[in-house]
């Protein structure tokens, strides 16, 4: 068997034992949502403060998305490791054997890593997507076009996330998409009203 196939088979085996898929999907949706909304906050803050330098917005945006990524990874790794260790200890009390060096122990550790990677990368990448237009500001020369495009992309990303959740729950994907957009619009309005230059 070639190494890639063996690796995929092992991953499938770990998935069967530790059920990574469902929890990773949940983390992905939840944290990508966080990433987009945080970036909407950053953008609205910059917009209200009248920041017109793409460089400033990109550096604050990148630093923020990096921080959300690190926060997601760190938080999920420790939470997931603790929960899974507890489950393993619980199971050990039934089997009366040490399960650390078994398939079950390895699957449990791999699950914590996969889930925390998803938890860290999802908000980081989602935030990065929202920030993308600012990298091309020089193409259209007008920073406010980047702002509007970024906010539109944020709403698009929220719609896609809603549709993804709708597909999971087998609901109307357009409706779940629009519900998610509602959160984005609310964050935009609040961000605008709460800024010292707004309202």
């Amino acid at each position: 068997m070639n190494p890639l196939r063996r690796w995929l088979q092992q991953l499938k085996e770990y998935e069967d034992i530790a059920q990574v898929g469902q929890i990773a999907r949940r983390y992905f949706a939840m944290n990508a949502f966080d990433g987009v909304l945080t970036m909407i906050g950053v953008l609205m803050g910059n917009y209200s403060a009248g920041v017109e330098s793409a460089r400033v917005i990109i550096s604050t945006g990148l630093a923020t998305s990096m921080a959300i990524g690190v926060s997601g990874f760190w938080g999920a790794y420790f939470t997931e490791s603790a929960e899974r260790k507890r489950d393993l200890d619980d199971l050990e009390s039934y089997t009366l054997t040490d399960l650390n060096e078994t398939k079950i122990g390895r699957a449990s550790r791999a699950a914590a890593i996969v889930v925390s990677l998803v938890d860290g990368l999802a908000p980081f990448l989602a935030a990065l997507v929202v920030l993308l237009p600012f990298f091309f500001t020089s193409l259209w020369g007008e920073i406010y076009h980047s702002y509007y495009l970024s906010l539109a992309m944020a709403l698009g990303a929220l719609f896609a996330l809603g549709a993804f959740l709708g597909a999971i729950s087998r609901e109307n994907i357009a409706l779940t998409g629009v519900k998610m957009i509602g959160a984005g619009l609310l964050a935009m309005v609040l961000g605008y009203l709460l800024s010292p230059f707004g309202g």
Binding site: E13, D16, I17, I104
Partner: peptide
């Protein structure tokens, strides 16, 4: 043998 539910008996 006493075993956890996962991996299954198929595995």
């Amino acid at each position: 043998v006493l075993k956890p539910h996962q991996p299954t008996i198929i595995e």
